[in-house]
Design a protein around this nucleic acid. Structure first.
Lengths: 198, 198, 198, 198
DNA sequence: CATGAATGAGCATTCATTCAT
DNA sequence: AATGAATGAATGCTCATTCAT
């Protein structure tokens, strides 16, 4: 089951707050989203927000972490897998886009928006990158991937990967994102794969 | 000479304000940057900002437009050129990264950050994309480029192109950006170019 | 009991704000009275004013409406009464001046000062006039009043009626206003009443 | 010729400023009229206003005084005149309404609006009242007028007199004001005149 | 667990006024 | 005589956060 952790249980106050915050953050960014508006959107008092979260930043951090956990969950298994890298990268694209299609707001909040609280996040914001980096490194060791600077390879892959959701958000490309998996996976492989392996 | 329009002459109050605003916007986004802080950074009174700009949004719009004008200037000539598309795309990458290396703040402000005043921008924010779209279309007509959906091709190219400055900003890749021109241009060509044309 | 609604019970924050606002408005007008000064006069924070009123104009409108309600309350009964018009007009004068003597600030704010938010008031600002107009019309129908243009009759009566509080405010006539009821009522009747009815 | 002093000469800068200020003051009051808007309306710079007037208040005072001078001019002759008081009061009404019809803004500014700078005006603001007071006193001595408290008589007369322009300004009575001279003069005489003298 | 009142600092913007040129 | 740049204080209003109940 996809995105289990986020679509949790009943509508506890906390869940309502998280859902409201993600919705608003995706729409207008975290900085422009006031505590007041989150509480109102969640249908609770502002004071309740402070019972569940230490402060505004704590709310954003908590949400961020939970979404990243959720996103990474299914991708972990791609790391030590017998399938060829090429297929595993394709699967990475597919899982990513599936998540976007299911939770566009959460995806946007975590992966497409800048975070003013970046340094407070620690390595949470690089966890997905790390995983991907290992995957690419594995491909380079096995000779399946072109021997690029790993950081650069990661960057290029991410650039390709995120460009589709970004454009869908801007209304300039039609969704669902999963309908573009093949194109993006192919492009990514041309960039990362050994030349000749079409 | 590059970026003439932005690095203007004397330090008039207006120039100071623009410089300060770009610096702060690149560092923390426009929404979190207060009029107060811009004025302080520019060494002038808040009221002076309002002599030169109608209001805060007008300031951001004005700056945005000027930077886009400046960025596009040199790229226009790439459109109707006899050189092969592949080389012209490479030149696009080079010019883009050169601009970034010269004006990282302006570049970041315009191309890497989301804009809450997007709709007020009108087509200003798509001008560069339009140019690039035409370039790619030209390549597809001539058979040099792979026949992808043009919007998708544009998206992928932009994704690759911007991922490098993004990572440099995050401190995860070493600059200058121009040192990555070859790698990015090559990757882009593998994605956009006809297969077989290494 | 007179003016019950305005001289309410305990000194809640809202009551303090209303009282302070009326005091200041009567003294210097609404436009020159800042939100800051109202809050200070009421002994609360500015932000509290915004918990109780949507904005500055809403404060003035709310107060205005409440005062008009309060003023009109006792005058309604004068409309369908068996007493001769002449006595009822006299009673109108008496009630008006009694209100002024009890709440000079509220009276001044509502009846003697111009309101920059007049159009937002709608018909609230003509309610008292309407009542009076009906009273005069009744007198004209019964033949007790001289057949003047009703609007003009209303105007003249109001002019006479308000001139006394106006002058007391300017310190050029001694109060209490009620001590002038007889004179003003007599004058008004000479203007409105059938000639011959001394 | 009426209102000679105000409709002066050519359009010197000073005249433009005065005209602009009166127009704006009549429309929105002095407090809400900014120096900036006066200058703009007059087509000059703000600094020019400060060359011609010491400060904002000085501007208002100067204008006020000039208008009052202008208004009083023709009324002076009514004081020591052989005509019966009743006719002279009627003429006072006529002159007043003629002034209003010619210079509604100036009239409104001086006679219908409250002035935050009242105490700085000194006796300027009572000059017209003084004149009128003498006229009434004359009528009382000659036995033509009813022996009311002179201040009260003045007040009632002013109340009647100003109520018409006030209502015209509010759009609730049709102008020109001079068309109401007879009605108002008659009403005033009923209030002030000896009973029996219809 | 939940509310609504309360706070103080900050926001974008405009004010009356001055000064160098 | 006239301009346009400059200022510092004030404006109406919103913020994140706390606290008594």
């Amino acid at each position: 089951m996809v995105n289990g952790r986020l679509q949790q249980s009943g509508s506890t106050t906390r869940e309502n707050l998280v859902a409201a915050a993600v919705r608003l953050a995706a729409a207008q960014g975290t900085d422009t989203t006031s505590v007041r508006s989150i509480a109102r959107e969640a249908g609770v008092t502002e004071a309740m927000l402070y019972r569940h979260f230490k402060n505004k930043q704590d709310l954003w951090l908590d949400i961020y972490t939970r979404i990243v956990d959720d996103m990474i969950e299914e991708k972990k298994s791609l790391l030590h897998d017998s399938a060829p890298i090429r297929e595993r990268l394709r699967e990475w694209v597919r899982l990513t886009y599936a998540y976007y299609d299911d939770n566009p707001d959460a995806f946007t909040y975590v992966l497409l928006l800048p975070h003013s609280f970046a340094e407070a996040l620690g390595d949470t914001c690089t966890r997905q990158g790390h995983l991907l980096l290992e995957l690419i490194a594995e491909g380079q060791h096995s000779g399946e991937c072109r021997p690029l600077d790993p950081q650069l390879a990661l960057t290029l892959f991410s650039g390709l990967l995120l460009s589709v959701p970004r454009l869908i958000n801007e209304g300039r490309l039609e969704g669902p994102a999963t309908s573009h998996v093949d194109d993006v996976a192919a492009a990514a492989w041309r960039v990362l794969g050994q030349s000749g392996t079409s």
